[in-house]
Amino acid sequence: MIEELTADTLPAALPELAALLEACVADGASIGFLHPMPAGEAAAWWRGLEGSLRDGSRRVLVARRAGRIAGTGALALAGLPNGRHRAEVSKLMVHPEMRRQGIARVLMLALEDVARAEERPLLVLDTKAGDAGEPLYRALGWREAGSIPGYALRSGGGADATVFYYKTL
């Protein structure tokens, strides 16, 4: 089941969302954080979304399995006048225990539906080069725009390249 997170539903979901973020980072996901995460960092990041959820500049979807949050993905709506036709898909994550069940695919398709409803026909995203999500993005019609070496630091040292993708709906 896919549902939209709002500023009002965020507080109740916060413990599960923080646990999801921590589990994904511990499993090696390159989603802006390094492992080990300091205590409270994940919850603070999610709490920090309240304003953008309230003003509508970010739309966050959660996928539930057996009543538990299994995954999430966000759509950041560009706000400047020359960008009101595009949005960025970000923080797509599925709990490591719930992967390979089609949850990421369902979230991506739902985010595309939100983008259509928001009249945002151009979507962009970036991901670590070689990430497990790349085949999914390509299968869903996303096109690679290019990569930047050394873009994101990795836990344990070093840096990974990121690959940018786009899709026109």
Rank of each mutant, 00 (worst) to 15 (best):
A43R: 03
V60Y: 02
E50G: 12
G79N: 07
D113E: 15
E88R: 10
M108V: 14
A78H: 14
A117H: 08
A132V: 15
A132I: 14
F33W: 15
G56M: 07
V89W: 10
V114H: 01
G79V: 11
R138D: 06
L75Q: 05
W45I: 00
S57W: 00
M93V: 10
L61N: 07
G83R: 12
K128I: 01
D126Q: 06
L75I: 12
I69P: 06
R84G: 14
A104L: 02
P149V: 12
A70D: 02
P121Y: 09
A29Q: 13
E134P: 12
L75D: 03
R58W: 00
R54I: 03
A139H: 08
G48A: 02
E50H: 08
G56V: 06
G133W: 08
L123S: 01
D27Q: 05
D27S: 09
G102P: 09
L80M: 10
E134C: 13
A63E: 10
L49M: 09
S52I: 08
P38E: 14
A39F: 04
R138I: 14
A129M: 03
G150T: 08
A74S: 15
R84D: 13
E112K: 07
S57Y: 02
H85L: 00
L61A: 11
R99A: 05
A110R: 13
R68G: 07
A145V: 05
P96Y: 07
L92A: 10
I69K: 06
P81D: 14
L53S: 01
R47L: 10
A110E: 13
M108A: 09
L92I: 15
G56L: 04
W46N: 02
G67K: 02
L111A: 04
K128V: 08
K91Q: 10
A76M: 04
L61V: 13
V94H: 06
G83N: 05
L136Q: 05
A115K: 08
G133T: 03
G133A: 15
P149N: 10
A152R: 12
A110N: 04
P38L: 06
R68Y: 07
R116E: 10
R143D: 07
R84E: 15
A110L: 11
L80N: 09
L107H: 07
P96T: 06
M98R: 15
E97D: 15
F33C: 12
V124K: 02
R68M: 12
E134T: 09
R54Q: 11
V94M: 04
L77N: 12
R105Y: 01
V124C: 07
H95D: 15
R59K: 11
R99Y: 06
S30I: 02
A78S: 14
R54W: 05
E97G: 13
E112G: 11
A26N: 11
R68T: 13
A42I: 08
W45N: 02
T72A: 14
L53G: 03
L49A: 01
R54C: 03
N82R: 13
A117I: 00
G133C: 13
A76S: 03
H95S: 13
H35V: 00
D55A: 04
D126S: 05
R64D: 09
P149L: 04
I31K: 03
T127N: 07
A43V: 00
R84K: 15
G28N: 08
L75E: 06
